[in-house]
Design a protein around this nucleic acid. Structure first.
Lengths: 165, 165
DNA sequence: GTTATTGCAAATGATTTGCACAAGG
DNA sequence: CCTTGTGCAAATCATTTGCAATAAC
C-alpha cells in the first residue's frame, strides 16, 4: 500500500514546491502502518517509536499536508479531538458506525446511500463534494446477551472509551 | 414553541432534582428565540442582551443540560467549535448540507435515508440510536452563474464564514 | 437551612505559531 | 545559498472547573 501513498505524496509535494524530508517519511510510515484510525497524539507516539526526535508540531503540520493531499481524512468521533482515517484511498466513500457501548468504530459502504445523498444535494441546488455519515448505535449482542466481546476488550485495554474528554 | 420546551425542561429538571432558575430561563429563552443554529459564544451574546450578568460558564453548563434533555443537539460544522441545533424537536431526524462556498447550512429530511441507515446498522448487528449526515457541497448557482446571493450576504455580514478557526 | 447554582478567574487540553537553527535542492 | 522544514516553548481558543458567594425549595 505504501507505494501508492508515497507516490501521491511525492506528486503533491512536487506540485506545491515543498520538500521531501526524513521527518515526513517517518510520519507517513507511522500513519499508514495500520488501517486503524488514530488521533494526532497516537500518531505522535507511533512516530516516536520510529524516530524519537519527532516533535508534536511536525506531526500536526504533516497531518495537515496529508489531509490536503487527500491521503487522510479527518473524522469526528465525538470526543474532542480530530481522528484521522487512513482508509479513504481504498474505500473513498465509506462511512462510520460508532458503538455507544464500547466506542468501537465500524466502517461500512453503501451505494444506495451515496446515490441518495447525491440526489438530495442536487435537489437542493448543490453539487455534493463530500458526505459524512455517522451512525451511533448500541450493540445488539450486548443488549440481548448482556455481554459484548468488544466492550470487554475495550475495558481491558482502556483504549477508545473516549467520551467527552 | 416555547411552551413545549419549557414543559420538557421543567420535567427534566424535576426528574433530576435540579432547580429552575432565572439564569436558566434567560438562556433557554435566548437559545430558542430563533430557529438558527448557534455556538456557545453566540448564545452567550444573545443571553447577555436579556440579562447582562450572564456568565459564559453558566451558558456552557446550561447547554449541557439542554443537550441532555434532548432539547438541543450538538452538530459539527467543521469549524472547531460545537454548534447547537434547536430544531430537532420539530424535525427529529433532519440532516445538514453545508455549502463549501459560503458556509450556509441547509436542513433536509429524507425518509429513505433514515430507513437505509437503519438497515445498515441492523445488518451490522447494532441498534441505531442516532444518525448524523453531513453533506458538504458547492453551490450550483455560483458555479454556473458565477454568483450566489448567500455568498454575497455572507461576505457582507462576515458571519458563518468560519473555516478552521 | 440544605443543596444546587452562579460568576469569576484560573485550569485544561487540543492544536497552532514564532523563532532560531537545520536541512533539502 | 536560498528557502522550506523542524523542534521547542509559548500562545491560542473553546471549554471546564474550583471556590466563595447566592439563590431555590
Amino acid at each position: 500500500m505504501d507505494d501508492a501513498i508515497q507516490e501521491r505524496l511525492n506528486e503533491f509535494i512536487r506540485r506545491k514546491g515543498l520538500r521531501r524530508t526524513g521527518q515526513r517519511d517517518t510520519i507517513v510510515k507511522a500513519a499508514f502502518s495500520k488501517d486503524e484510525h488514530f488521533t494526532a497524539d497516537e500518531l505522535f507516539e507511533r512516530a516516536r517509536k520510529i524516530d524519537s526526535e519527532t516533535s508534536r508540531a511536525t506531526v500536526y503540520r504533516t497531518l495537515g499536508l496529508l489531509v490536503e493531499a487527500n491521503l487522510l481524512r479527518e473524522i469526528d468521533l465525538g470526543d474532542n479531538q480530530t481522528t484521522y482515517d487512513p482508509n479513504f484511498l481504498d474505500r473513498p466513500s465509506h462511512n462510520h458506525l460508532v458503538c455507544i457501548d464500547c466506542g468501537r468504530v465500524l466502517e461500512f459502504e453503501d451505494a444506495h446511500m451515496d446515490l441518495l445523498n447525491d440526489c438530495v444535494a442536487r435537489r437542493l441546488g448543490y453539487k455534493p463534494v463530500r458526505q459524512t455519515i455517522k451512525i451511533e448505535a448500541n450493540c445488539e449482542q450486548l443488549r440481548l446477551k448482556g455481554r459484548c466481546p468488544n466492550l470487554i476488550a475495550t475495558r481491558l485495554t482502556g483504549k477508545r472509551l473516549r467520551k467527552k474528554r
